[in-house]
Nucleic acid binder design. Structure first.
Lengths: 98, 98
DNA sequence: TTCGCTATCTATAAACC
DNA sequence: TGGTTTATAGATAGCGA
């Protein structure tokens, strides 16, 4: 995009990489926020720049809550404890139905 | 974008919200992957749809590693243990690091 | 180096199938 | 209901200050 097209591979030039990082990070954060609002999704985004700086975004329920929820979901996913819970995932307490 | 412009607010129509979620989730994941590669960043993205389904993406080092790194970084941030480490982050002996 | 400014490229809202 | 297509809104690479 922009004036020219670029390949998706590590940018060698450090200056350029830094500039691109700032711009795309901003864009990604914006998109993340939009998705969370538009679709009422729970979302967490964590980014470490190559210089080690941390940037993050989390939807309204907060980062901690989402990370916890993630750990729980993962456990289920791997352990496959309740086939039932899977089957029910799409309708439960969400009246928004369809 | 697309054929018409939309406001950034929760989409009421459930069907439309679901469609938009799928599309934007895909786009967001793609952007996240590009940022990680282009800028050699360490990145984690966690998304829960409003129906409760989990989707995630993590750069090469893996989700676990990134979440741990996040916890550590947060501690530092809040506790402010090492002013030194902060001060050194942006210029010192890091020609362009990686 | 950081900030703005376009020309372009990409993502995507609707329309179709 | 779910995959394609299309025209347009939005993101952004390269510059210039």
């Amino acid at each position: 995009m922009g004036r020219g097209k670029i390949a998706i591979e590590r940018i060698d030039n450090a200056t350029n990489r830094q500039v691109t990082f700032s711009k795309r990070r901003g864009g990604l954060m914006k998109k993340a926020r939009e998705l969370a609002i538009l679709c009422d999704a729970d979302l967490a985004l964590i980014v470490f720049s190559s210089t080690g700086r941390l940037y993050d975004f989390a939807s309204s329920r907060g980062m901690e809550a989402i990370l916890e929820r993630y750990q729980e979901a993962k456990q289920e996913h791997c352990g496959v404890l309740n086939p039932t819970s899977e089957a029910k995932q799409q309708s439960p307490g969400q009246p928004q139905g369809r």
